[in-house]
Simulated scan of single mutants.
Amino acid sequence: MRTLRAILAVLLLLLPLTGCWSDKEVQDLNYTIAMGVDYVKDEYVVYVQFLDFITVAKVEGGQSQSSKVWVGHASDPDLTMAIAKLYQSSQQRVYWDHMGALVFTGRLMEHGYKEVIDVVNRYRESRYNIWVYGTNEEMEGILSATAFFGLSSVNSILIEPTEAYKQYSSIRPIQWYEVIRDSQEASTTTIIPSLALKERTWEENKKPQKMLYMDGAHVYSNDTYRGKLTSAQLQGIQWQEKKMERFPLVIRKGGRTQGVFMLQKPVKKVIPYWEGQTIKFRMEVKLGAVIQEVGNEAVSIEELEQLASEEVRRQLRQAYVRGVGRGMDLFRLREILYRNYNGWWKEQVQQHGVQFLNEASLDSIHVTVDIIHKGRYMADES
């Protein structure tokens, strides 16, 4: 009897449990991995990338089947309705919880993306850690690109850019929460990496393969779209980016290469000050360096450090001047004043519309490069 009573007690305890009646199997949902938004002829064009997680599992399990990527698109003057039109032919429920990237075209950014912010944030399944990109290429090509070995875009910089950035810190990836935050303050500058396809670098069985890479960035400054800069035009901004891990610097003297440094983890300090009614800034940057390569000429460690410091300073100055010439505050100097001298900001900028940034505003740039590892470099340091 005691055993029977115990069994009945356990069964009674199990009755209130509801179980997982509403759960769906993997194959019963369409998983959105990335979404692209364009703006053409007064209509939003929405692109959605689906991923077959079953084939992903097979590839990761060692089987040879390549991951399949599906891309759909629909358009409407209203962004919400453009998304809704995709549901009409999606066959199954669209699941947004795995969305890892948002891609905007240059046309959309010229139009403005505040409606996209409003709509995406109203989806309860959307996350704030989505990666955000711009592109001037065809959206279908960007969203259809895969990674090596038949792996999906989950294994590409579209969804996971951080590991590549740690090794080559050119243009810092940006997340959705940063875009939202910057859009609410007129003092900030938002630098959104630009995606493109490169097809002459990698081959599979002697067949060129198109791979995603960052070819520059789209810039919002003072709540206005300022356009796109190429990677070459952005050269220099990485030296003042606090999240930079490492980036190579070629050191030249008299037209000859003296060496290649791998510069690491900059520490930046910006000091604003006034000369009469004119605001100016001083910038100080310190970087560590690892010697990767040296030329044939014997050069002392001190001279290499000096040459590196001068080259970094030159690139920083060049990037600042190029940005100011196009209305871009690439070093976010306006934000420093907004945060630290808000009274002055409200009076001069908000009330009187003072535009204080010009080429002379960044008065001085002091750069210190310290070699932290010499490798096998054996120069005469005497």
Rank of each mutant, 00 (worst) to 15 (best):
R282I: 06
V270F: 11
E293D: 07
Q292Y: 01
A289N: 05
V285D: 01
P272G: 07
V270K: 09
T278G: 05
E284P: 02
K268Q: 14
F281N: 13
K268M: 14
Q277M: 08
P272L: 09
A289Q: 03
I279P: 11
W274Y: 14
M283N: 09
I271C: 03
V294P: 00
V285F: 03
I279Q: 08
A289G: 11
K268C: 06
I291W: 00
K280A: 09
L287G: 07
K269I: 04
K280I: 04
E275K: 14
A289P: 10
I279K: 14
E284Q: 08
R282V: 04
Q292G: 01
V285T: 15
I279S: 08
E275P: 08
E284A: 03
E275N: 12
I291N: 01
V290N: 00
P272K: 11
T278K: 15
N296W: 04
I291K: 00
K286Y: 01
I279D: 04
E284L: 02
Q277E: 15
Q277A: 13
P272W: 12
I271A: 05
G288E: 11
E275Q: 15
I291C: 07
V290P: 00
Y273M: 03
M283Q: 13
V294L: 02
K268F: 05
F281S: 14
M283C: 11
E293M: 03
Q277L: 05
E293Q: 11
K269M: 08
L287N: 09
V294M: 02
K286I: 01
V294Y: 00
K280T: 03
E284Y: 03
G295I: 06
E297D: 10
V294Q: 00
G276F: 07
Y273R: 06
W274T: 10
I279L: 15
V290H: 00
Y273C: 04
N296F: 08
G295E: 06
Y273P: 06
K286A: 04
F281D: 13
I291F: 02
Q292R: 01
G295N: 05
V285Y: 02
K268W: 09
M283L: 15
